[in-house]
C-alpha cells in the first residue's frame, strides 16, 4: 500500500494561560505501519526544521501501559481503534487524503498546559484520598498465598487494576465524569480481603475528592467502557456505587 498524505487540525496553545486555537498542518509520505505518535514525530521534525515550535504531546512508554499519551483524535479518545492507547494506534486506521482533528483531553479537572498536554494530577489526588492499603512492608511481609482468595474475585480485581489512569474515560464522557477511573480504583481493593480494612473510608474519601476536582456525573452512556484502552467494565462503577451507599449507611 502506498504512503499517505494527511491534513492535521491540531489544537495549539502556548501555555495554560493563553487562549488556544486549531491550526492546520500537512504531513506527507506517512507509512501505514507507523504509530500515531510516530506520525506526530514526523510532523514535529518538520516543524523544528522550519524553526517553528513543535507540537507538545504526552508520551512515555509507547507500548500501551504507562497511560501518558492522550489526544482526542477525530472526536474519540485515543482515536478510532478499540482497546488501544494513542501510541498503539496505527496509521493504517486512516486513509490517504484524510483530515485528522487532534485535540487535548477536555475536562475542567484536566487543564491544558500546552498544546495537547493536559494536567491529570486530579487523578493523583483522588488516589491519595484512598487508593491504597496500609501494610507494613518493612521486610516481614507475609506470603501472598497465605490469604485464600476466590479465583473469580482475584480475576475481577486484576481486571480493575489494569486501569492505567490515562483519562480516556473522562475525555470521552459527555459529562467529563471520572467514575470509571474511580470505580476501577475502588473495585481493585473492594474485591480483595486486604482492601476491607479501609473500605468504608476509602470509597467515601475518593468520591469526595472526585467531586471536589470538578468531574461531572455519570449518565451511564457507557462511552467510557468502549473507549477504555484496558477494557475496564461499567460493572466497576456499579460496584463503587454499592460500596459508596453501604459505606454511607455505616457512616
Amino acid at each position: 500500500m502506498s504512503n499517505m498524505n494527511l491534513t492535521l487540525k491540531i489544537w495549539r496553545q502556548k501555555d495554560s494561560k493563553s487562549k488556544g486555537k486549531m491550526v492546520d498542518y500537512k504531513v506527507s509520505d506517512i507509512s501505514e505501519h507507523m504509530s500515531f505518535l510516530e506520525m506526530m514525530d514526523v510532523l514535529n521534525e518538520q516543524l523544528i526544521n522550519k524553526g517553528e515550535d513543535p507540537v507538545a504531546f504526552d508520551h512515555d512508554c509507547r507500548e500501551g501501559i504507562c497511560g501518558m499519551c492522550s489526544m482526542f483524535i477525530n472526536g474519540e479518545a485515543h482515536g478510532p481503534d478499540r482497546g488501544v492507547t494513542t501510541c498503539q494506534l496505527h496509521m493504517r486506521m486512516f486513509k490517504d487524503g484524510d483530515t485528522i482533528t487532534i485535540e487535548p483531553f477536555r475536562a475542567k479537572a484536566f487543564p491544558v498546559m500546552k498544546d495537547l498536554v493536559v494536567d491529570r494530577s486530579s487523578f493523583d489526588r483522588i488516589q491519595h484520598a484512598g487508593g491504597y492499603i496500609s501494610v507494613n512492608t518493612s521486610g516481614n511481609t507475609q506470603d501472598a498465598n497465605a490469604l485464600p482468595i476466590a479465583k473469580e474475585a482475584a480475576d475481577k480485581a486484576m481486571d480493575a487494576a489494569t486501569c492505567i489512569g490515562c483519562g480516556a474515560c473522562v475525555a470521552t464522557c459527555k459529562n467529563a465524569s471520572a467514575m470509571l477511573f474511580v470505580g476501577a480504583k475502588v473495585s481493585q481493593y473492594a474485591l480483595l480481603p486486604q482492601g476491607q480494612v479501609e473500605a468504608t473510608e476509602r470509597v467515601q474519601n475518593m468520591v469526595k475528592q472526585m467531586d471536589l476536582e470538578g468531574f461531572g456525573n455519570c449518565t451511564n452512556t457507557g462511552a467510557c467502557e468502549v473507549e477504555c484502552p484496558k477494557g475496564i467494565s461499567l460493572e466497576t462503577i456499579a460496584r463503587m456505587n454499592r460500596e459508596y451507599l453501604t459505606a454511607s449507611i455505616k457512616g
Binding site: G75, E76, T101, E103, K108, K174, N175, A176
Partner: peptide, 17 residues
C-alpha cells in the same frame, strides 16, 4: 455536567461509543 467541560471539543464523535 456541562460545567465539568468548560471548553468543548471541536469534533466530538458521540455516536461512536
Amino acid at each position: 455536567n456541562n460545567n465539568a467541560r468548560a471548553i468543548k471539543y471541536n469534533k466530538y464523535n458521540g455516536s461512536a461509543n
